[in-house]
């Protein structure tokens, strides 16, 4: 009995004292990167041809509005880079200029994107603008943007009507940004 109990105790003690472990490096946690890429629609604009014709002037539309998505503190502090994608579709009977400007809190223009598109029938204009990468535009443009100004210029006439049902000019856009969570 003594031998058995001694063996048992020795085993138990040995297991506790001699318990070993592979070498761990908990400082690795500092190297962990958690950088998801978030994607969502940004801005959708629909302008009917009727509205363009009724305006009677070339600069048929301009509007500045608050856009707080980019200046949300968490986003602004952690965004690394990203891409804004635009699609401009014109089914009206006139060529158009559509300009989108990013403005800072003081109303200063940070970035301008101009789309010139022919009258219908014409292909959808696609464009991707990169920010924050070595070849892209400055990411600070994004993080400093607090408003957007949209301008539409009619490069044609104010009387013609497209043969396509419900003629409009559509601006679609989405944003895809990498955000560092850690």
């Amino acid at each position: 009995m003594k031998i058995f109990s001694k063996i048992f105790l020795s085993v138990l003690l040995a297991l506790n004292l001699m318990a070993c472990s592979d070498e761990q490096d908990f400082n690795q946690i500092d190297d962990l990167n958690i950088i998801p890429t978030a994607e969502a629609s940004l801005l959708f604009v629909e302008i009917p041809e009727e509205f363009i014709n009724e305006s009677g002037v070339p600069d048929f539309y301009t509007q500045t509005f608050n856009f707080g998505a980019f200046e949300e503190q968490f986003f602004a502090e952690n965004v690394l880079d990203g891409v804004i994608s635009y699609e401009v579709e014109n089914t009206t009977s006139k060529p158009l200029d559509v300009t989108i400007e990013f403005l800072d809190a003081g109303g200063n223009v940070l970035d301008t994107e101009r789309f010139t598109i022919d009258e219908a029938p014409t292909a959808v204009l696609l464009r991707e603008i990169t920010y924050g990468t070595p070849t892209g535009r400055d990411i600070n443009i994004i993080t400093s943007t607090s408003a957007i100004r949209l301008t539409g210029v009619n490069l044609g006439d104010n009387t013609s009507v497209s043969g396509i049902p419900e003629p409009v000019v559509l601006l679609r856009s989405s944003a895809m940004f990498r955000i560092r969570l850690k």
Partner: peptide, 24 residues
């Protein structure tokens, strides 16, 4: 949601409209 949506001419009815805040 599909982002901020401006459909003219309705989007011009209120010159002080805050589309972003409205979306939020």
């Amino acid at each position: 949601i599909e982002g901020v949506e401006l459909i003219l001419p309705d989007a011009l009815e209120d010159p002080n409209a805050d589309f972003w805040q409205d979306l939020v």
